Amino acid sequence: MALNTPQITPTKKITVRAIGEELPRGDYQRCPQCDMLFSLPEINSHQSAYCPRCQAKIRDGRDWSLTRLAAMAFTMLLLMPFAWGEPLLHIWLLGIRIDANVMQGIWQMTKQGDAITGSMVFFCVIGAPLILVTSIAYLWFGNRLGMNLRPVLLMLERLKEWVMLDIYLVGIGVASIKVQDYAHIQAGVGLFSFVALVILTTVTLSHLNVEELWERFYPQRPATRRDEKLRVCLGCHFTGYPDQRGRCPRCHIPLRLRRRHSLQKCWAALLASIVLLLPANLLPISIIYLNGGRQEDTILSGIMSLASSNIAVAGIVFIASILVPFTKVIVMFTLLLSIHFKCQQGLRTRILLLRMVTWIGRWSMLDLFVISLTMSLINRDQILAFTMGPAAFYFGAAVILTILAVEWLDSRLLWDAHESGNARFDD
């Protein structure tokens, strides 16, 4: 018995066209964080690309023209004298008006014999932002004059995390709450300039795509075929072959399989920071003279006294001054041990922890910024005066060393310790 099946006739004509040209192939790229070699397709503007294995951002879609970056830099340069030299806060102490600005706080630190601690604050609040705007201006002028731009481009990517104007702005709020127990506070004209400078700096850093600047100024022929001998440069993120001198053909720094002496430098910085954190938390970090009496505060006791007036601000200072430094030390110690013992479990967790400490590390400088600003506000000789204690130097040095330890660690070593050939990683 035959089955009668109805015929289905399409209502619209289906047209099949042959592909007349070869589909576009992607360029081969190595991930600078996990060293995976993959094919990167062509990316349009405002599109980002991520590593298929570790999800690290390979290409950032946010990109401004150099002219727009230069305009932002010149605007920031105009704001800087007002943000640093004009009063941020006014207080009335014992019937006398006192003005506080950024430069005055750094000068008070240096004047009291601790120039190293003052230079830490100076670099993060004044030096690094000033280098940022002058570097962008150098790129703008240098591109037109045919100057060598490689050193500036190499420095810009590392400079971003040292620009800490946003953290200093939080420190202004913390210092205001600490001082309000002794005097009446009012915002100064410099505060508005400083807030504007923070906003412009944040926007500029978020749109400063150094890798795209490398592509514009020093374009290189990408690798179009897969080759395990391809290496990625950690300076400019170019994937290719080393030249005859073993250097990256684009930025001219040595092109090595792994960062040289990464573990040794990381261990040295980490152990030194552990040693410095002990006096930083045991010795007094601030000293207040009130009517001839002397009151010393460690980091913890200062947080407890701050909690009596504002528990939320005390929580912020606790996280930045105690929780973050010790968390960074514990995480980095764990990561280094996992590399030495070739741990194969929990790779995803370790990668996330490394990215976390990379982002939060700079916030530990908050305590030094609060001390710097408070020193310029309260300084009335023996009637009422505020000065920093010996722990300030140890704390600042420990924070900087932990930042350097994270920067010096080559994250690809975590993958080397893991089993080879993993296309995915999980716990």
Rank of each mutant, 00 (worst) to 15 (best):
I8W: 11
P10F: 09
T11N: 11
T11C: 12
A18S: 11
P24F: 08
G26H: 12
D27R: 14
R30D: 01
R30C: 12
D35M: 04
P41W: 06
S45P: 13
Q47V: 12
Y50S: 08
D60F: 11
G61S: 15
G61Y: 14
W64E: 06
W64D: 10
R68N: 04
A71E: 01
F74H: 03
T75G: 07
L77R: 01
L78G: 05
F82N: 10
F82Q: 06
G85C: 05
E86H: 08
P87N: 12
P87T: 11
L93Q: 01
L94M: 05
G95H: 06
I96F: 04
D99N: 11
A100E: 08
N101P: 10
M103I: 04
Q104Y: 04
W107Y: 10
M109E: 07
M109H: 02
Q112P: 10
G113T: 11
V121F: 11
F122M: 12
F123P: 00
I126W: 04
A128H: 02
A128L: 02
L130V: 11
L132Y: 05
V133S: 01
S135C: 06
I136L: 03
A137H: 13
Y138K: 01
L139F: 01
W140G: 08
F141Y: 01
R144A: 12
M147E: 01
R150E: 02
L154Q: 03
M155H: 05
E157R: 13
L165N: 13
L165H: 14
D166V: 15
I172P: 01
G173Y: 04
V174H: 02
S176W: 06
A183T: 03
H184V: 06
L191P: 03
L191T: 15
A196Y: 15
A196Q: 08
L200Q: 15
T201G: 04
V203L: 14
T204I: 03
H207L: 11
H207Y: 15
L213V: 06
L213Y: 03
P222L: 07
L230I: 09
F238Y: 10
G240C: 05
P242K: 07
Q244D: 07
C248I: 00
P249N: 11
R250V: 15
R250Q: 15
L255S: 08
S262F: 01
L263A: 04
A268D: 04
A269L: 15
L271P: 01
L276T: 05
S286P: 01
L290E: 00
Q295F: 06
S301F: 07
M304G: 08
S305V: 07
A307R: 07
S308G: 11
S309A: 04
I311N: 13
A314V: 12
I319Y: 04
A320G: 12
A320D: 10
S321H: 00
I330Y: 14
V331G: 12
M332L: 12
F333D: 05
L335S: 05
S338W: 13
F341C: 12
K342N: 10
Q344M: 13
L347Q: 15
L354D: 15
L354Q: 12
R355D: 10
M356D: 06
T358I: 13
G361L: 03
R362F: 02
L368W: 02
S372H: 04
L373R: 01
S376P: 04
R380V: 05
L384T: 02
A385C: 10
T387S: 05
T387C: 07
M388H: 11
G389Q: 01
G389S: 02
A392E: 01
F393G: 10
F395R: 00
F395K: 00
L401P: 05
I403T: 02
I403A: 03
A405Q: 05
D410W: 00
L413N: 08
L413Q: 10
L414G: 07
W415P: 05
D416C: 07
E419T: 11
G421M: 11
N422R: 13
D426C: 08
D427A: 14
